[in-house]
Design a protein around this nucleic acid. Sequence first.
DNA 1: TTCTCATGCAACTCTATATGTTGCGAGGTC
DNA 2: GACCTCGCAACATATAGAGTTGCATGAGAA
Lengths: 154, 154
Amino acid sequence: MRRDSRLSGVLHVLLHMAEQPGPITSEALARAMSTNPVVIRRIMGGLRDRGYVHSEKGHGGGWTIACDLAAVTLRDIYDALGKPELLAMGNRTEAPGCLVEQAVNAALGETFDEAEALLLRRFGEISVAALSADFHTRLAERGGSPALETNHAA
Amino acid sequence: MRRDSRLSGVLHVLLHMAEQPGPITSEALARAMSTNPVVIRRIMGGLRDRGYVHSEKGHGGGWTIACDLAAVTLRDIYDALGKPELLAMGNRTEAPGCLVEQAVNAALGETFDEAEALLLRRFGEISVAALSADFHTRLAERGGSPALETNHAA
DNA sequence: TTCTCATGCAACTCTATATGTTGCGAGGTC
DNA sequence: GACCTCGCAACATATAGAGTTGCATGAGAA
């Protein structure tokens, strides 16, 4: 099953925005991500509704960060995306009459719930600012430039 | 995305087989699972290759359990299914040149790996026999019959 | 006012994958 | 030989993420 990369994508976008003071257009972000501006608007819509980012139309418009990234966790971003499915597996039937299936569901369901809880807990422990800090550490080690173009040239 | 229910399905099949001494045909199992015989053969193929079950052709043929269910864990079954994808999310790009994406991948990847490891560990802790025992506990509480038909009549 | 820029949104296509279905051949029992 | 059951290939269906196109709307520039 193809894996959902929206969370990965939107974080990528946020970190790039954090490196630039002014607004960035969907078009520029799409170029950096090798994708389509509409895809950018799509994944950013939820974040805009929650006030994490702001979008401006017209000349000089685009996307800007509208919050303190240290106060926003990956869990918040995940929620803003609409809480997509975390696990690729699930029970065949949710409320089965068959006792065999109930036994299977109980065991698997408990395991699945545990894994989901772990993911959400970890997401809640990581702020977007922490990711940005990690990026700057990597940048210092490599001595590159934070500009959009140079990082994606290769 | 629709969640993969093969693990749930094959466990359901195994537990039903454990309740019956003789071989069960794909057709009978499919009826019990409200699905198609070919689907049954498909998910059982991997288990047959590993010797967990045996299939017999012709009159009186069908599927039989060919191992000690106490020695087989959900992890073994999962492996026999071909180790399908566990998580519905993943990184946008696996080996990105962009340092921003590297930082995102590092954080998310670690979390994803943790969750996968947890799932596999839990699978390894549960034997099929344990599921069967749980089923019998439920059966005693409800006082029903273990026959295929009665359990699925409703 | 008019032109250009950029978002917002709907509708469509494309692709991958689990699942469902049909048909036929191989092998086994009666 | 007649019948049963698995094995397998081929095709159909459904769903969801992703990509694409077109147009309307609002904002700034000339």
